[in-house]
Write a protein that binds this DNA or RNA. Structure first.
Length: 630
DNA sequence: GTTAGGG
DNA sequence: CCCTAAC
């Protein structure tokens, strides 16, 4: 089985870059991320751990009954501690007793770079303390997590328990089911998915409901039909559950009590609930001072954003109530009796789901379903391993300046919230370079500003590309066929190694067969529509283009397309027109000013000649060849 | 649907 | 590469 970048189709010996070349924006974001605060670190830590577990899970079938791992991650203020028993079995000993005050990407990466060769059942709990204004001693207030331990099944529960005394408590949960499907038929689509034909990778339920139920009756949870994923596309990967804000200082005690109760939730229930790959994240976190967010995974719309003037917030574990009255329960609202002014200054927002990086998976049609499942799992794990960070997207644009206020960013009125989106991005590009070629290779999809326009609930898409030239029609519905082989004359692909990096990023457009369908919202699709991945023209393509223009002129782009780029479906005639435009420009500037893949001067000379000719003979766009071609 | 040009 | 006006 081979997974590769879509653009790599037709290219043998696909060279997996050690560091996939992400668009500048992505790289910039990655760098920037390192400068961000604890929240992001905590967030990424969770993602990294999730990846770790998934990875292990993948290899866990042989020894599923082995000793249970019991570990703890604790982020204590600025520090991170991971305690994990028998962690050495998976080779991350060095990191996992690390207490480091510089939580860096490297650490997070280390956390998740185990080769996973050993099977370990995992049951982790993460305690995270996000310190804001609290003095250092407040770190001692961190609630150390305790696992939902118990049975030896292979589910894993994470808990985020954050405490900052001067801000009340914030507690959230990341629930990650690390179980493996025992049978293939567990990958059928869940009947309750919103969209048939799509596959969810995520737990659909609110963890709050889940845990609540778990607290009451583990039987009920155990009997629940599991969320599923399967088929070819994984549609949704993770939803961050609600968390509720209250400014009532007195509330956090009860909240903490709830949290403790959740902690005791039997891990077995997790396991029994989820077969297959199921990731549910319940998370609560303070985004910025005086701001709180209620999130749920119910859909896409952004409908509430609660901003508290208080510094106390706590988790409302009852998911059944999180959609209503959240804002009203903020003591700030109560303390300042629901003045319109107060309400106007607040934005309530419900994050129905996060968009996570797209993955591309390529498998031969002769691959087994089981191997496909493995591949998908690998894909997901790969992304999670790299860690994630959150991007905020307003009207299709990422808000990169974290210092902007919501108002400055246009996140203030409900009308604006329609175009508000969140996206999870890989913190660091995966570097599967060590893999042998036949191993599944998964790359995080590109981000750039392209994906920033993606539909907000386009959580996770995995495009499966067939090597078969003409797959069965029925298959073509589900399998994205790649016809992106370079056009006729571009076989040489001298820039191949360069391209192979860029290839790592291949977005799925909403029009693609495997595109993700918005769950609840359709109106903002245009604003969040996805931008195509940049695909530089190869020299061969340029030559083909020049040739065609020489013969057809500059006003017949559709003919050019049909003549020389008929099979290059990713090149529209507009693309060709644009490329010609840039070619002319390139030819007119000095070589020193040119950038990108060098175009042979000979070709540029032909560009200039053709451009000059057709500028003069614009009216002679007949079939007659220009004189310089005769 | 195409073309042309600005962004 | 996107968007849109103009055809």
């Amino acid at each position: 089985m081979m997974i590769k970048n879509k653009r790599g189709s037709g290219i043998n010996g696909f060279d997996v870059p050690s560091i996939p070349k992400a668009p500048r924006s992505a790289r910039r974001a990655s760098i920037k991320r390192k400068l961000e605060g604890h929240q992001v670190c905590a967030f990424d830590l969770l993602a990294a751990v999730a990846g770790k577990l998934l990875q292990e899970n993948e290899n866990s079938s042989a020894s599923s009954n082995e000793t249970e791992a019991k570990d703890q991650f604790v982020m204590d203020g600025d520090s991170v501690i991971l305690e994990r028993r028998n962690w050495d079995r998976v080779g991350d000993t060095d990191f996992f007793h690390k207490k480091d005050r510089e939580i860096s990407d490297e650490h997070l990466s280390a956390l998740s770079t185990s080769d996973g060769s050993e099977n370990v059942e995992t049951d982790l709990r993460i305690g995270i303390s996000v310190r804001t204004d609290a003095p250092p001693k407040m770190c001692n207030n961190t609630k150390t997590a305790h696992h939902c331990k118990g049975s030896s099944d292979d589910a894993a529960g994470f808990e985020i328990n954050t405490t900052a005394q001067d801000e009340g408590q914030r507690t959230g949960y990341l629930l990650l089911n690390n179980s493996r499907p025992s049978q293939d038929d567990q990958f059928v689509s869940a009947p309750d998915l919103h969209h048939e034909g799509s596959v969810k990778l995520v737990g659909k339920d609110d963890l709050g409901k889940y845990i609540s139920r778990c607290s009451k009756s583990s039987k009920a949870m155990a009997s629940r039909s599991p969320p599923h994923f399967g088929n070819i596309r994984v549609r949704k990967f993770a939803g961050y559950k609600y968390w509720k804000v209250s400014s009532k200082l007195g509330d956090h005690d009860s909240c903490a009590g709830e949290g403790e109760r959740h902690v005791n939730c039997s891990r077995k229930t997790y396991h029994e609930r989820d077969k297959g790959l199921d990731i549910s994240l319940v998370k609560k976190r303070k985004l910025c001072d005086q701001s709180s967010v209620i999130t749920s995974d119910r859909g896409v719309s952004s409908e509430s954003f609660s901003k508290s003037h208080e510094k106390c917030l706590h988790v409302n574990k009852n998911s059944n109530t999180h959609l209503h009255g959240a804002n009203e329960e903020c003591s700030s609202s109560k303390n300042h009796p629901a003045s319109d002014h107060t309400r106007d200054s607040q934005v309530r927002l419900s994050i129905k789901s996060f968009e996570v990086p797209e993955l591309l998976v390529e498998v031969p049609v002769t691959a087994t379903v089981g191997s496909l499942k493995t591949t998908v799992l690998e894909a997901v794990s790969s992304v999670l391993r790299g860690g994630l960070h959150v991007e905020v997207i307003v009207k299709g644009k990422k808000i990169r300046d974290d210092t902007n206020t919501l108002m400055q960013s246009g996140i203030c009125h409900s009308s604006n919230l329609d175009s508000l989106g969140f996206m999870l991005e890989p913190s660091s590009p995966q570097a599967p370079s060590s893999r042998c070629q036949n191993d599944p290779v998964v790359m995080p999809a590109s981000d750039d500003n392209k994906s920033s326009k993606r539909s907000p609930d386009s959580a996770l898409a995995i495009s499966v590309i067939s090597d078969e030239p003409s797959p069965a029609p029925s298959l073509s519905k589900q399998v994205k066929i790649d016809h992106d082989a370079a056009p006729t004359a571009s076989d040489a692909l001298p820039e191949r190694s360069q391209e192979s990096k860029a290839l790592a990023l291949f977005p799925v457009t909403s029009a693609d067969p495997l595109a993700i369908v918005p769950m609840g919202q359709k109106s903002n699709r245009s604003e969040l529509a996805q931008r195509r991945t940049r695909r530089p023209f190869s020299v061969g393509e340029v030559e083909a283009l020049v040739q065609a223009v020489e013969e057809l002129g500059t006003g017949r782009w559709r003919d050019v397309k049909m003549r020389s780029f008929e099979n290059a479906e990713h090149r529209t005639y507009v693309d060709l027109k644009d490329k010609w435009k840039t070619l002319v420009h390139t030819a007119e500037i000095s070589p020193q000013q040119r950038r990108g893949q060098p175009v042979p001067q000979e070709l540029l000379n032909r560009v200039l000649a053709a451009h000059a000719y057709w500028s003069q003979h614009h009216h002679v766009k007949s079939n007659a060849k220009p004189h310089f071609l005769r």
